[in-house]
Design a protein around this nucleic acid. Structure first.
Lengths: 157, 157
DNA sequence: GTGTCTGCAAAGTCTTTGCACCATA
DNA sequence: TATGGTGCAAAGACTTTGCAGACAC
């Protein structure tokens, strides 16, 4: 049923309400952008995508909403070393668990999903052991590879 | 400004010279701190440790030296999500290859060295395959686990 | 109607840059 | 002596905060 509300928003809406937050146009707009765009968006990226449709929503709201989303565990906040945070919806439903390859030259980011099964196995083992040993409740992990893409590797010479 | 040379510095000195940099008191002091302190120091941490002995060395020099060290591959720059970069000597010779467990509550950081062998194997496989597939020259990687330490886990309830 | 959310502007924090002077080689 | 390195102050970049008005419920 196409309507003003997105088919996916009721779930988010309920989640917000359940956490004691209100459901607002701004929050909906931000979640819409996050779910429809490619990953690793900065706060400004999101702002620029929200703005054409909702010119009233400011950068402050973007930051505040992303904070809430991160706290609620809906969004993952990354640092790729270029001085600004990047955000991704954790369960984009259609999006696979993935990690990043980051070019130290041009900051290009490649998502990869290879070795996820093997990774999962190792991670599970580590998680069990580390949780016990250090009395830590592990909730997530990051694996990032850094290097140079073919373009930047050439330029270095 | 003549100073007392440390026994470990010749190697670093040679490395600096080999890269076309000069060997200065400031650089020596910073490397001394990095090699003698625990890990994950911020630029300011380093500044505060260098300052008592070398009050003339400013924060600017710390940042500039850390940049060089990172470029030369002697130091690894981390982001643990608290808005400031952290630095560690990569091969502190006595320090094992390790990774980090980060508490999302209090930002406490635990180093762990478990599963490093198994991890290395997987990482090597991933590295080989990803380099080829994405035409990337991979130079380093990060693995970090996030969660809550026992203290912060209790507080959440 | 009440308590949250919001935009704007200002403040805050970490980091980088410009420039004149100083040290290394 | 010729570069490269340094401190200081100022600028820069991203993010957070204060406050009055707007909105959700």
């Amino acid at each position: 049923m196409p309507g003003i509300r997105l088919s996916t928003s009721p779930w988010w809406q309920a989640r917000f309400r359940g956490c004691g937050y209100r459901w607002t146009l701004g929050r909906e707009a931000i979640l819409e952008v996050l779910s429809k765009s490619e990953e690793h968006l900065s706060a400004e990226d999101i702002y620029l995508r929200v703005h054409p449709k909702y010119p009233n929503i400011g950068l402050t709201t973007i930051y505040r909403t992303l904070d809430i989303l991160t706290d609620m565990g809906l969004v993952w906040k990354f640092d790729f070393g270029d001085g600004r945070a990047r955000y991704e919806l954790i369960e984009g439903s259609k999006k696979m668990h993935h990690h990043h390859l980051i070019c130290k030259g041009c900051n290009r980011i490649v998502d990869y999903t290879e070795f996820i099964e093997e990774e999962k196995e190792l991670v599970k083992k580590m998680q069990n052991s580390l949780s016990k040993k250090y009395n830590f409740k592990i909730t997530s992990h990051i694996i990032q590879f850094y290097g140079f893409c073919s373009k930047c590797d050439k330029q270095k010479d």
